[in-house]
């Protein structure tokens, strides 16, 4: 029997005030339904993990998010990550005790990389996902924060290496150039980051067809691929995607 760590397929649910939404290129936002219902559907279809990103993440929404996480944790029996607006170890504690397996940090980690070390120290590296939004501009891959609104001086590979050194357990790498475009993942930067790091990298941004998933798994050593709208709107079903990948010799959980 061949034993092989499987490439993971991860649907992402963007959450706004308790509802699922999906932005196109980080701007236009469309309603896509109840997150718990969607989550259950994804688990039944064979999703390997789920990511929930609270894209509003205001203070008054934190409690809504925690209670949503509790509902999700009761309903699903696969691992899930929660992110959006996490600024402190206390924020993490609330989500972990509500039942999240991992949390993802983005802008707050860029502004204060020590946050990664603090979370890893308190809850373990395995629960810290560092999300990186990146854009190819002026011939360089640059890190953006604030939901893609603010450029930083950081180079993507360098920041990813720093995040790993600080104790990140995983990197969620989203290419802003391809996000929402359904034109395929940015394989170049994904290959660079996953080659340089010893922790798993999740490729994100641009999935439109099953071929795009095959391409990112063949051309890069990423451990997982994430997508949102194509799963929400049933443009690709997870079982069909997994059959396609499996037929193309990419090891996935069936």
């Amino acid at each position: 029997m061949q034993v092989m760590l499987k490439k993971r397929i991860i649907p992402c649910l963007d959450i706004k005030e308790g509802r699922t939404v999906k932005g196109i290129n980080f701007v236009d936002i469309r309603d896509a339904g109840d997150p718990v219902e969607l989550a259950i559907r994804y688990v039944e279809e064979g999703a390997d993990e789920l990511v929930f990103l609270d894209i509003t993440a205001t203070v008054e929404n934190r409690k809504t998010l925690a209670s949503l996480v509790e509902r999700i944790a009761i309903e699903i029996n696969i691992p899930f990550t929660v992110g959006g607006g996490i600024n402190t170890v206390e924020d993490v504690g609330v989500l972990i005790s509500a039942g999240a397996d991992k949390v993802s940090v983005n802008s707050s980690a860029v502004r204060s990389p020590g946050l990664i070390r603090k979370i890893a120290g308190e809850f373990g590296s395995q629960c810290v996902v560092v999300a990186i939004d990146t854009r190819f501009i002026n011939n360089e891959w640059i890190v953006y924060v604030d939901g893609g609104r603010t450029p930083t001086p950081l180079h993507t590979v360098t920041w990813a290496e720093t995040a790993e050194r600080m104790g990140a357990g995983e990197i969620l790498l989203t290419s802003m150039n391809t996000d929402g475009t359904k034109s395929g993942f940015s394989t170049g930067i994904t290959a660079d980051v996953s080659k340089r790091l010893n922790i798993p990298v999740i490729a994100s941004g641009g999935a439109g067809t099953p071929e795009h998933f095959r391409e990112v798994f063949l051309k890069t050593s990423c451990s997982a691929a994430l997508a949102a709208s194509i799963f929400h709107y049933k443009e690709i079903s997870i079982p069909e995607l997994k059959k396609y990948l499996s037929d193309n010799n990419i090891n996935v959980r069936r």
Binding site: M1, V3, M4, L5, K6, R8, D48, S125, Q126, G169, E170, N198, I199, P200, S221, S223, A224, R253
Partner: peptide, 15 residues
């Protein structure tokens, strides 16, 4: 040993 990604994270089967 760091011969592959660590942590071992994800779905795997048995020998």
């Amino acid at each position: 040993p760091p011969h592959d990604k660590v942590p071992h994270m994800g779905w795997n089967n048995f020998t």
